[in-house]
């Protein structure tokens, strides 16, 4: 069995895995920060140390994500298309899946793939922040909340404050208006979760809905958003026992192995 490393360089986090064949040996998440190259290097070193192996044992390196092409490494590496990795990782995490919805900080991606994990169709979010993790970041900052808590807070809501602004700049001032008019925080958060779920559902509908679907990326940890998307597109996401934000890195590792 060979070792391989996969890294997914996101806008907010760098996700890395060491795999031995199809099994995860170590996984690391680091903040991307303002110096992605340094963070990526640290992530790589920590992966080796956590897996307790030396770099010469690694047979393949796969890197994907928005920042991947801006980085240089001192070893031979495969730059892989994000969606290819996502599909491969989804297939690995849930072998029956044929569709993956990934909501990351910068982009939301939806892909349909076949039994080999080959992508047949995909769509990305529009070139604006609405419908991405970034939208949640901006909104949580405006409310002085931690983005990771939005799911939980929203589920305590007693009503839905609808955010109807189309642009995240307009939306930010809209939620401030709601704060000023005395709406409860949880109800506004509920509206924010609902709003992003709508945007993501739209992209899913653009690709065309498919059973056997999974959701990945940081936003997949927000249960409220996930439940709303399920209601809107009328499917249930399949469970898989892996950290949802690691799927891209896992896919990168597996794809690199196949070269």
């Amino acid at each position: 069995m060979h070792f391989s490393i996969g890294m997914d360089i996101g806008l907010v986090g760098i996700k890395g895995v060491v795999m031995k064949g199809e099994n995860i040996v170590a996984q690391v998440v680091k903040d991307t920060g303002v110096r992605p190259a340094l963070a990526a290097k640290e992530c790589y070193e920590q992966l080796l140390s956590d897996a307790d192996i030396s770099s010469d044992k690694i047979q393949a390196h796969g890197v994907s994500g928005w920042g991947s092409k801006t980085l240089s490494f001192d070893f031979d590496i495969e730059y892989l298309p994000d969606v290819v990795c996502l599909a491969k990782g989804a297939k690995w995490a849930c072998p029956t899946s044929r569709m993956v919805v990934d909501v990351g900080a910068q982009t939301a991606k939806v892909a349909r793939f076949d039994g080999n994990g080959s992508v047949k169709k995909y769509e990305l979010s529009d070139k604006c922040a609405s419908g991405t993790g970034r939208f949640l970041e901006i909104m949580s900052a405006a409310l002085g909340l931690k983005v990771n808590n939005l799911g939980q807070i929203g589920q305590a809501a007693s009503k839905l404050v609808e955010i109807s602004s189309q642009c995240s700049v307009f939306a930010e001032s809209e939620i401030i208006s709601y704060v000023n008019t005395g709406e409860k925080t949880e109800d506004i958060v509920n509206g924010i979760n609902y709003s992003i779920a709508k945007r993501v559902s739209t992209i899913i509908m653009r690709v065309g809905i498919q059973e056997d679907i999974i959701i990945t990326g940081g936003v997949a940890k927000n249960d409220a958003v996930v439940r709303y998307i399920e209601e809107m597109v009328k499917v249930r996401f399949k469970d898989y026992g892996v950290d949802p934000q690691m799927i891209g890195a896992i896919g990168a590792s597996l794809t690199a192995q196949q070269t």
Binding site: S164, F170, A171, S173, E174, S177
Partner: peptide, 10 residues
Amino acid sequence: RDYRITDVGR
């Protein structure tokens, strides 16, 4: 603006 104005504060 949008068709509907909801961000009144701005």
